[in-house]
């Protein structure tokens, strides 16, 4: 990438990322163990209880994550490469943030309207397409999906105020 020197700087080192993921998995494992113990994790008279398998699954997650954590802590600073560079992270966020906003919008505006907005803005901002082209693809895409899902296959997808206004819900 030609983001300049600044772009190649590590936004987060591999070591940090390894440690974070290992800790996160350990936490998940702990949650699983906690709920399994509540359900009963012993081997009953007629085989394992509901929590038996999840308990050991949780335990193995914790143990293997602990080992992964140990390995991560041993990464020496001079060998510690970048997990993601600033320039890369920027590009990733350029997709991730709109996606999160898009999913948020779906609950409010329905999937068709938010998809049209999402596709249009994505094309306009990232692809630098002309407004009319972006809009045509965005709206056309939503109309096509509306026909496929709602009309032909009768699969109800989330709808919002616009569909209600048009009497399409």
């Amino acid at each position: 990438m030609s983001e300049g020197r600044d772009g190649a700087r590590a936004a987060c080192t591999r070591k940090t990322a390894e440690i974070a993921v290992a800790l996160l998995l350990m936490a998940l494992g702990a949650i699983v163990i906690y709920d399994s113990l509540r359900l009963g994790a012993k081997w009953g008279s007629d085989g394992p209880q509901p929590g038996y398998f999840p308990f050991y699954v949780g335990l193995i997650i914790c143990i293997s994550s602990a080992l992964n954590l140990f390995n991560a802590l041993r990464i020496r600073p001079e060998k510690d490469k970048a997990f993601v560079e600033v320039g890369q992270l920027k590009l990733v966020l350029v997709v991730l943030v709109p996606t999160v906003i898009y999913v948020g919008l779906v609950g409010w505006l329905g999937i068709y309207v938010s998809s049209a907005i999402f596709v249009t803005l994505f094309m306009r901002r990232l692809g630098k397409y002309a407004w009319w082209k972006s809009l045509a693809v965005g709206v056309g895409n939503s109309v096509a999906f509306f026909l496929i899902f709602e009309v032909w296959f009768q699969v109800p997808l989330p709808k919002g105020p616009l569909e209600a206004l048009l009497g399409l819900d």
């Binding site: 997709v95 996606t99 898009y102 998809s115 999402f118 596709v119 094309m123 692809g127 895409n141």
Partner: peptide
């Protein structure tokens, strides 16, 4: 990519 990516996400 900037056309197909948002459609894939949808």
């Amino acid at each position: 990519f900037s056309v197909i990516a948002p459609i894939i996400i949808v």
